[in-house]
Lab assay of single mutants.
Amino acid sequence: MASQGTKRSYEQMETDGERQNATEIRASVGKMIGGIGRFYIQMCTELKLSDYEGRLIQNSLTIERMVLSAFDERRNKYLEEHPSAGKDPKKTGGPIYRRVNGKWMRELILYDKEEIRRIWRQANNGDDATAGLTHMMIWHSNLNDATYQRTRALVRTGMDPRMCSLMQGSTLPRRSGAAGAAVKGVGTMVMELVRMIKRGINDRNFWRGENGRKTRIAYERMCNILKGKFQTAAQKAMMDQVRESRNPGNAEFEDLTFLARSALILRGSVAHKSCLPACVYGPAVASGYDFEREGYSLVGIDPFRLLQNSQVYSLIRPNENPAHKSQLVWMACHSAAFEDLRVLSFIKGTKVLPRGKLSTRGVQIASNENMETMESSTLELRSRYWAIRTRSGGNTNQQRASAGQISIQPTFSVQRNLPFDRTTIMAAFNGNTEGRTSDMRTEIIRMMESARPEDVSFQGRGVFELSDEKAASPIVPSFDMSNEGSYFFGDNAEEYDN
């Protein structure tokens, strides 16, 4: 783990906690998980779902989305002020799938948001429990990260689609708070800032007046979040320049895209947490497990152990491969979309394939898809080993990566060399080191050039047997250095459309 220093740990961010010791953190995270579980059980009762239907990941996603929508204050306010045809701002819903006479049927349900809020609060001892809501947002974000390569979004903001390893959390809503900021990748933060800068260039009043003052505060806050992700002084200094700019424009845009590229080699610290679907927490609570009393951590053995003992089902389209669908969801559960496939294969105990080789589309089923041909199958979400999630980018030494994705962002704290394609990355730096950030740029390029592919990161860190909950005997895996390590390699994943 990167030293926490003055930073709060993510469990504290996750639970809005002030400084807590490890036991208190485990208890408050457990409380959050228990609340999600209780809410899910109650919703299944309301909807009269069978046990099997309640364990269907598509039903879980609909129920999670309903509660997130019920608590989305800004959108609710907007919907009330701008009524649109056929949208009731006070209601929320989605597809629920039921097994009827041996076939899967889709039923569109509609609930009062007020009623959903009441059920959620009741499951969370009367609190709004925003930490639990954020947790579900991060699960949705991790699922998107594993399912889609955001080529269009990258290109629109002047970045290269091969930089997708920097895009963790790119679909997280803005209201996801400190826990959300911690899991956002460098590219995601750059993209958010670039969008602001572009608006400022096109709209003279963007930075002016009372609204402009708020915009400015948001801009500086985002700059500080991004600065905190960088691990070298030169990158941090460049972020200070971007933040202090009187009138952010093209120079800042250039600096930010430069920094994003540099992060492929001088990786930023991005938190990883295993956020599971509500249909995993519900049955665990129903079986009598007391998360608050037992304590829970999002970055240790607990999620692995929970998945070892969970039964989750998914709808499967006619030509999809259930094992591939399982891999997709497994990666999402562990926030591992940008991790090295060699490491993932070792931990999972079966070969993890790149996205383009998977015969599976996303987990969600569109409303126009034919239910007649839908089957369902068990998702295999178990693992051979477990490993500690990392909050750091690993040290800054790398190795060759593949054509589709030119770097990785480690999820697990496991000893290995970190793949990246130096030639491709360095070719993108057209040696432009003039301007006010020239000395920093020169320094950053120097550090990137001296990074050695064969150097090892996370020295001495290994994986653990599932029986080793105290992480007492690390097993340090050895990897084939020459092997392909990137998930979005030469990829044809669908595009994420909101």
Results as ranks from 00 to 15, higher is better:
M1P: 13
R26E: 01
K31L: 09
I36H: 05
I41S: 15
M43T: 09
E53F: 07
S60R: 11
K77H: 06
K77R: 14
P83H: 10
K91Q: 08
G93L: 01
R99K: 14
D112S: 05
I116F: 04
R117K: 05
T130I: 11
D160E: 12
M163D: 00
G169K: 03
T171D: 06
R175T: 11
A178C: 00
M189E: 01
M189N: 07
V190C: 06
L193D: 02
V194C: 05
I197L: 13
K198P: 01
I201W: 05
N202S: 10
F206T: 05
F206D: 02
R208P: 00
N211Y: 13
G212D: 03
A218Q: 05
Y219I: 07
E220I: 10
M222V: 12
I225N: 13
G228E: 09
A237G: 14
R243W: 06
G249M: 06
F253W: 03
E254N: 07
A260Y: 01
L264C: 14
R267A: 02
A271E: 00
V285M: 05
A286T: 13
Y296P: 04
D302T: 06
L307W: 05
S314E: 02
P318C: 04
P318W: 15
A323E: 09
K325D: 05
K325C: 03
A332T: 10
S335Q: 15
A336S: 07
A336N: 01
D340S: 15
L341H: 00
G356P: 01
T360D: 03
Q364V: 07
A366Y: 04
E369M: 11
N370Y: 15
N370H: 10
E372M: 07
S376W: 03
S377V: 02
T378W: 01
I388A: 05
R389I: 00
T390L: 02
G393S: 15
N395E: 01
T411E: 02
V414A: 08
P419N: 00
T424L: 05
A427M: 15
G431M: 01
N432K: 10
E449C: 08
P453Q: 13
S457Y: 13
F458V: 06
R461F: 01
A471R: 02
A471K: 07
P477R: 06
D480T: 08
G490C: 06
